[in-house]
Write a protein that binds this DNA or RNA. Sequence first.
DNA 1: AAAATAGATTGATCTTTGTTAAGTGTATTT
DNA 2: AAATACACTTAACAAAGATCAATCTATTTT
Lengths: 195, 195
Amino acid sequence: MHNFQALFDYIEDLSGQTLSAEDKQVLMAHFKPKKIRKRQYFLQEGDVCKYTGFIVKGAAKTFSVDEKGHEHILKLSVENWWLADFESFYKLTPSRFNIEALEDLEILQITHSVVEEFIKPIPAFLAMQNVLSQNNTIAAQKRMQSSISQTGEERFQELVNDYPHFIQRFPQNLIASYLGLTPESLSRIRKNALK
Amino acid sequence: MHNFQALFDYIEDLSGQTLSAEDKQVLMAHFKPKKIRKRQYFLQEGDVCKYTGFIVKGAAKTFSVDEKGHEHILKLSVENWWLADFESFYKLTPSRFNIEALEDLEILQITHSVVEEFIKPIPAFLAMQNVLSQNNTIAAQKRMQSSISQTGEERFQELVNDYPHFIQRFPQNLIASYLGLTPESLSRIRKNALK
DNA sequence: AAAATAGATTGATCTTTGTTAAGTGTATTT
DNA sequence: AAATACACTTAACAAAGATCAATCTATTTT
């Protein structure tokens, strides 16, 4: 028994609408349950991101690797988030990112064309997409503003305030990378903040 | 004679669809032409962003001001872009940003409720919004990746490649702020890059 | 249990960027 | 034409953060 209930709840919550029994049938017919073990990849750099996955359980990181071999974490994703490199997913171009499971993942995945053909006609899904798009725009704007106008310490404090569970759930070196810092710098920042 | 043609062209271009004569009538009936002189504000911090404006002509900056009184430029906007703080516009909350004309502006502006009621029913407009939302997601992701993984010099080079007209059109101190640098730092970076 | 691995911390040093201040040239204003 | 404001540069110094190396601990893995 795969937990489609999490997806239904999510759509109804964000859209403010109710899914009919037929809507749920359509969703269950097209979203494919998939499990990905910790340390396995959902997407590898250079591949096209054919699927987007709704995270029912688990966590993942989206990262790029620079010329020096250093990882840079663009996104940390947990339950009720969508897993994909959206540039690659929308445009069907090779991705510059890797997506790797940080914990065992249970997702419900689907291709772009199936979304367009079967899922978008569901009004609640379309409404959910609009709200999600707005939320993402707002979050991206906020993170960008932090990045251009705040110090590492301020960005860390904001993350603690906005996503306290991230601090609990992910090791500090991943948090550092997400903030655009080295682990050493974040360690020192935290030490100095305790003065 | 206000140039609705620019808006029509833009919608048809991004949506890949054609606007009917009635569609155009609806757009002309609800988008209000407005002129804003250089140095005047389209939005002030603390106010709710009631309108979004399609830029027919001119340019603007979206910026915040920190405790030390320093400006941080979140966005530079030119023709065929939308002018708004979308967080404030969508949620009707007071904005943390200012939007100021860098050149005399001609815009076509509209409120959120009028978009929802009269404009979204136009299929080409809805399709345009979807494409725009995708493009914005992709651009935001790219800028964020630059910000966490590249030096000032690399970010500047990327801007030169991706938006060469920005370099022509805007003074270097605004470009610096957009990149999260001081004018002095960008000046040095450019000097060193000429080695 | 032993070995290997991953994460966190610290110190020394280097690089990048910010700060402050001064100076120059060029538009704009008056 | 003179005055003012603006954009840009340079220099000296300070601060933030990166790099490299070592150590310590806590997990995993074997």
